[in-house]
Design a protein around this nucleic acid. Sequence first.
DNA 1: GACGTAACTGTACCACAGGTACAGTAACCT
DNA 2: AGGTTACTGTACCTGTGGTACAGTTACGTC
Lengths: 207, 207
Amino acid sequence: MLQQVPRRRTDTRERLLGLAEQAILAKGFASTSIDELIAGVGITKSGFFYHFRDKNELARALLERHIARDRELLDDIFRRADELNDDPLHGFLVGLKLFAEMMDALPQAHPGCLAATLCYQDQLFDRTVHALNAESVLAWRRRFRARLEAIAASYPPRQPVDLDALADMLSTLVEGGLVMGRALKDPTILPRQILLFRDFLRLTFAP
Amino acid sequence: MLQQVPRRRTDTRERLLGLAEQAILAKGFASTSIDELIAGVGITKSGFFYHFRDKNELARALLERHIARDRELLDDIFRRADELNDDPLHGFLVGLKLFAEMMDALPQAHPGCLAATLCYQDQLFDRTVHALNAESVLAWRRRFRARLEAIAASYPPRQPVDLDALADMLSTLVEGGLVMGRALKDPTILPRQILLFRDFLRLTFAP
DNA sequence: GACGTAACTGTACCACAGGTACAGTAACCT
DNA sequence: AGGTTACTGTACCTGTGGTACAGTTACGTC
């Protein structure tokens, strides 16, 4: 029998983040205790505070990871949609369909959950976390607004339309869809709302 | 000088609820302490637990009050809109405009805030609170679906449309709009989203 | 092989939040 | 006069986030 020498790990921080993410998405930030996390990855409290100065910093690290991952996912989806299609409107419509399918498959994986969780527990977090959160929302707005401008250039809208508000509508539906999905325990609400947004776009721009 | 005899109050419970509502909308549920509330209304901890068996029951009472108030407000708005207008589509469009104006004036007064707060701190609450929350969302769905059915009967939609999803869209935009408004500290987002929903309805149903 | 650094452990301690458990009391209603 | 309502006061317990700091062990580097 080889005695397993307690090997030194270099991935403890990542394992903490992973476990924290799972726990927070399932139970919320306030209900996820540090004790629970350190028991899960097998370290002591001192170990936790070696990696994160406080719970706030854990939230920030988590949010950063989530935002980065999310950006890659969206980049990927809309790149694929654009490859299939040269037209800006049709590319966006295809991308939205892929997005809805993704949200159908893994609705809890979305950073919106985290963002909203953070929003509704305001006082628990500091300015840097709020700023990070706001910046990620604005990044969505810019991304979608650029696409909407390209679309509006080719397809004059049927009604005058505020492109910023229209870009925000998708984020709004995602955030709201996550809340609704939780409240009704029905994960199909979010993807259906995305498809409705798609219908709205088609009605607005399609000739 | 008349010595003020410490008069017995019968409205302590209401005052607790009022203060708690304010504090929770501003800071979130978890960050609002019982100590803070009892200091605010001038009673002791025992006094608090005389009125509410625990914090959970405070949440329930608050949610009930909010839901009732909300129903009255919506009833009022759409009654007024209907009085001005016999047509189901135009009545709804007018109602939505009034609703957007109301959300512009007092966005933080909406129970959606509370509902979402509760959603995202799941484990803190028991089944009765969740059920209450879900029921209030379903009440919205029924209310708007009934109107949409009346509209669809007079104005056949331009595209086939899922009336439940369309009814949910308004709730979704409200919930999401509150989150977005908080994240960006921009209270105009919610009313603008409601007006976009209005545009969507018009495009879908108007001849 | 010595030396520093990264990644922890261990111990001790603190404040605050959410309770629990009762016994007592003052005002009000009948 | 007696019961109910609306509390007060005291004491105590748990869990959670956090601080302080000294000690330890593996690893890479010179």
